[in-house]
Design a protein around this nucleic acid. Structure first.
Lengths: 142, 142
DNA sequence: TAAAACAAGATAACATTTATCCTAATTATG
DNA sequence: CATAATTAGGATAAATGTTATCTTGTTTTA
């Protein structure tokens, strides 16, 4: 019922890139800035890349940058990039996983909840979060 | 991000008891009727008992019955009885689990989502589900 | 007192999570 | 063109969580 630590790390990373969108950033820098194990983060970034959330540049001066605007990346996008499709019960996504889906009266509830859940998570984007972080840093400098 | 199979089993079991509330039922009967491994279900019923969702009677003619009206038992109640407090990120429930909760701008989002999530799950009760099952059986007899 | 049923702890197989490490492949730069 | 910097991807492994099973004890009815 919880997101994994991996997903939490992915969010920190996307947030980091969202604060200066357009700018490329090395794994090492993000790992240090956000307290994420470097080699683990490298793996996570591959998943974010496959989901078209970040893009990568190899070689000297390489690194990662957002592939889309922060306002076009939601919590849901990042969660699904890492953990796969969101749903509360496997049967809402794969009916074959439960032999009773056909006549189970709980099944339709899982389907409704899945939609509500996705809507909920789709409402938060990384522009919002980056703005929050920008304001917070400004306040602390005073 | 998913409920466990154990929780799914717990729901089947509470639903089974909700169809004839007031009536006591043996582990063996519920296990067979709902396709749940017997010894596993016995464990699950202990958790449901601790959460005051079912009550138990020992000895010959013993068994389990609901401790409350089906309309007073929500999906949330059963999920929390089995898996503990619902939240999407551990930090929403235990700030010490993350060293950054204090200045993390994502943290407040987890807190909001947790509340929304609990509200969502609290809206479905077992009277509704039992009614659905009753109607479905009636229809199939025709 | 015997049989039926729940109670509770120990244990174990399996899957998932959370990483780490090593070897490519790619690219900028002197 | 050689070298250093950086991502890409596969193999591996420790720790944790899930999904059970089994055994022994306790309670209750008849």
């Amino acid at each position: 019922m919880r997101i994994s630590r991996e997903t939490d790390y992915a969010m920190r990373c996307v947030l980091h890139l969202s604060v200066n969108p357009g700018q490329t950033c090395m794994v090492e820098e993000m790992a240090q800035a956000r307290g994420v194990p470097r080699s683990f983060l490298a793996k996570i970034l591959q998943k974010l890349k496959r989901a078209n959330i970040v893009e990568s540049f190899r070689g000297v001066k390489g690194g990662f940058a957002l592939a889309r605007k922060p306002s076009d990346i939601s919590l849901l996008d990042v969660i699904e990039a890492i953990q796969g499709v969101v749903s509360l019960n496997i049967c809402a996504v794969d009916e074959k996983a439960c032999d009773r889906s056909g006549d189970c009266v709980i099944h339709p509830v899982w389907v409704i909840l899945r939609e509500d859940f996705q809507t909920m998570l789709g409402k938060f984007d990384f522009q919002m979060l980056a703005d929050d972080e920008f304001l917070k840093e400004k306040k602390e400098k005073k």
